[in-house]
Amino acid sequence: MGQARALMGLSAQLDEELDFREGDVITIIGVPEPGWFEGELEGRRGIFPEGFVELLGPL
Rank of each mutant, 00 (worst) to 15 (best):
Q3M: 12
E38T: 12
R45I: 09
E17C: 13
E40C: 11
P58Q: 09
V25C: 08
D15P: 15
V31F: 08
D19V: 08
V53H: 00
D24Q: 08
E50S: 13
T27P: 02
L56E: 04
F37V: 01
W36E: 01
E38G: 04
E42N: 15
G43D: 07
G39E: 04
Q13K: 14
G9R: 14
R44T: 06
A12K: 13
L55E: 06
G23M: 00
R21L: 11
L41V: 12
I47M: 05
G46C: 06
L55D: 01
R21P: 05
Q13W: 06
L7Q: 12
L18M: 01
P34F: 03
L10V: 10
E22W: 03
F37E: 01
M8W: 13
M1W: 09
S11W: 06
P49S: 04
L18I: 07
F20A: 04
G9S: 15
I28L: 06
A4N: 05
E22D: 06
L7H: 05
M1V: 10
G51I: 14
V31K: 09
G23S: 05
E40M: 11
I26H: 05
G57A: 13
Q13V: 12
W36R: 06
G57I: 06
G57R: 11
G39A: 04
S11F: 09
G57V: 09
L14M: 15
P49R: 13
G30P: 12
L7D: 02
L7T: 14
L7N: 03
Q3F: 14
F48S: 03
E38I: 10
I26A: 02
P49A: 03
E42I: 01
I47L: 11
E40I: 13
I26P: 06
P49Y: 02
D19I: 04
E40Y: 10
R44F: 00
G23E: 05
E50R: 11
S11V: 13
F20H: 03
R21M: 13
G39T: 05
D19M: 15
A6D: 00
V31H: 12
D15C: 08
E22A: 11
E33Y: 08
R21I: 11
D19F: 11
V53S: 02
I47R: 15
G57P: 10
E38Q: 09
E54W: 09
V25M: 12
G2P: 07
P34S: 10
G39N: 02
P49E: 07
S11T: 12
L10W: 15
G2H: 01
V53W: 00
L10Q: 15
F52L: 13
G35I: 01
L41K: 09
G35A: 03
F48Y: 04
L59D: 12
F20D: 05
P34K: 13
G43R: 02
L10A: 15
R44M: 00
E54T: 08
V25T: 09
P49L: 04
I29S: 01
T27D: 14
L10S: 15
E54R: 08
V31Y: 08
M8I: 14
R44A: 07
E50L: 05
E17D: 10
E50I: 08
G23L: 01
R45Q: 13
L56F: 07
D15L: 08
D24T: 06
E54K: 10
D15H: 09
F20C: 04
R5G: 05
F52E: 07
L55F: 07
G46M: 03
G43W: 00
L55P: 09
I47W: 07
Q3A: 09
G46E: 00
P34W: 00
D24W: 03
V31P: 00
V53L: 04
E38L: 15
E38V: 09
G39S: 03
E17V: 11
I29N: 03
P32C: 02
I28M: 13
F37I: 07
L59N: 13
T27I: 01
R45S: 08
E22K: 15
V25Y: 08
R21W: 06
E40S: 10
A6S: 04
G43C: 03
R5F: 06
G46Y: 02
L56K: 05
L59Q: 14
G23H: 04
D24R: 01
G35Q: 02
E38C: 11
R44N: 05
M8V: 14
A6R: 01
D24L: 02
P58E: 11
V25D: 04
D24I: 02
D15M: 09
R21S: 14
A6G: 04
G39D: 00
G30C: 02
F37K: 07
G57F: 08
A4Q: 05
R5V: 12
G35V: 00
F48K: 04
E40N: 05
F37D: 03
A12F: 02
L14Y: 13
P32Y: 05
L55R: 05
I26F: 01
I29V: 13
P58N: 07
G9H: 14
F52R: 08
F52N: 11
E40H: 09
E17W: 14
L56P: 04
D24V: 01
E40Q: 10
G9A: 14
E38H: 08
E22L: 08
P49D: 02
L10I: 11
T27H: 09
G39H: 00
L18N: 06
L18E: 01
E40K: 09
M8H: 13
R45L: 04
E42V: 01
I28C: 02
E50H: 03
G9V: 05
E17S: 12
L14I: 14
L7F: 01
I26C: 00
G57Q: 14
P34R: 09
Q13F: 07
F20K: 00
D15T: 09
L55W: 04
G43F: 02
V25R: 09
V31M: 13
Q13P: 11
I26M: 03
E16L: 09
D15E: 11
Q3D: 05
Q3V: 12
M8G: 08
G51E: 11
R5D: 02
F20R: 04
E38P: 02
L56I: 11
S11K: 11
E54D: 09
M1K: 10
L18H: 02
G30D: 13
L56H: 05
G35W: 01
F48V: 08
L7S: 09
D19C: 13
G51S: 15
G57Y: 11
D15F: 02
R21A: 12
G35P: 00
P34A: 12
R45C: 10
D19L: 08
E38R: 12
R44V: 04
D15K: 09
V31L: 10
M8S: 12
G46T: 00
G35M: 05
F48W: 00
A12I: 06
R44I: 04
M1P: 01
G30N: 01
G51H: 15
G35S: 04
G46D: 01
W36F: 14
T27K: 12
G2L: 08
D15Q: 14
L56T: 08
S11G: 08
G35Y: 00
E54S: 05
T27F: 01
M1H: 08
P32I: 07
G57C: 12
I29M: 12
L18V: 01
L55A: 08
L41C: 10
F48T: 05
G2I: 13
I47N: 07
P34Q: 11
I47A: 09
Q3G: 01
P58A: 12
F48I: 06
E16G: 14
L41T: 02
G9T: 15
L59S: 11
G2D: 07
G2K: 06
G23P: 03
E33T: 07
R21F: 06
I26L: 08
V31G: 05
E22M: 10
E16N: 13
F52D: 00
L56Y: 06
L55Y: 08
S11N: 13
A6M: 08
A4T: 02
I26S: 03
A4G: 14
L59E: 11
P49G: 05
E17N: 09
I47V: 14
F48H: 00
W36A: 04
F37P: 00
G30L: 04
D19K: 12
E22C: 10
F20I: 08
P34G: 03
G9D: 15
P58K: 08
G23R: 02
E54H: 09
I29T: 15
F20M: 07
G9L: 05
Q3C: 10
E16C: 14
I47K: 14
G46L: 04
G23Y: 03
V53N: 00
